[in-house]
Design a protein around this nucleic acid. Structure first.
Length: 195
DNA sequence: CCAGTGATGTCCT
DNA sequence: GGACATCACTGGT
């Protein structure tokens, strides 16, 4: 495990669709306040950008969505119906973009996630954007956090072969609902719902 | 100021 | 399949 140099993050600054695809198979490493370490593999993402009516960034910069207009590789956290959801910011500074993390696969610290999730287990631990934030203790305290550093890091893994990636429409939106900007690891049991 | 909305999850019937 | 928790933002009064 090494810190990813800035020059290796170039792919995050291209289109948010490409970044959302490229994040599949990458990992998130979370150091909890009590010193425990959690690690998960990203298996489902959705792409959003400022030209997209479904995006929080549509309509321009506000105090809430400001991290989406900041540097790629930082985190954007928001609350929705009493839950937290998180995006990995993509694109260049000044362009509102991000990849929503919709589902992850537990790799390390599963028992701790289970405790944080009220005793649920298996895919139910992390197969939804609110669920994974609860499992990983991702709250507004981590909003705009730089993901090259503890307590939350992205570990870049080799890009998945194209045939391992499924594409579908995004979940739970009403605007721009036809756009196919949801990306999933094909046949993973840890996705939020089949494509 | 207030009501309505939304990239959700859980519990209830 | 429906109620509801809970909050930033929007649009209307």
């Amino acid at each position: 495990m090494h810190t990813v140099p800035d020059e290796d993050w170039g792919w995050l600054t291209v289109t948010t669709e490409l970044a959302a695809r490229r994040l599949l198979g990458c990992e998130l490493e979370r150091d909890l306040d009590d010193g425990e370490r959690l690690r998960v593999r990203i298996v489902e993402t959705e792409a959003y950008d400022q030209h997209d009516e479904a995006s929080h960034a549509f309509g321009g910069l506000t105090p809430r969505n400001a991290p989406m207009f900041g540097p790629a590789g930082h985190l954007y956290v928001y609350t929705m119906h009493g839950h937290h959801c998180c995006n990995i910011v993509t694109g260049r500074v000044g362009h509102g973009q991000g990849a929503l993390i919709r589902a992850v696969e537990p790799l390390e610290g599963e028992a701790i996630m289970q405790r944080r999730r009220g005793g649920r287990h298996g895919a139910q631990l992390t197969n939804g954007p609110g669920k994974l934030c609860q499992a990983l203790d991702i709250t507004l305290a981590l909003n705009a956090h730089d993901l090259t550093h503890s307590p939350l890091r992205v570990i870049v893994r080799p890009a998945l072969p194209e045939h391992h990636i499924a594409v579908s429409t995004r979940v739970g939106i009403t605007k721009a609902a036809a756009a196919r900007r949801r990306f999933l690891v094909r046949d993973s049991p840890y996705v939020s719902r089949p494509p």
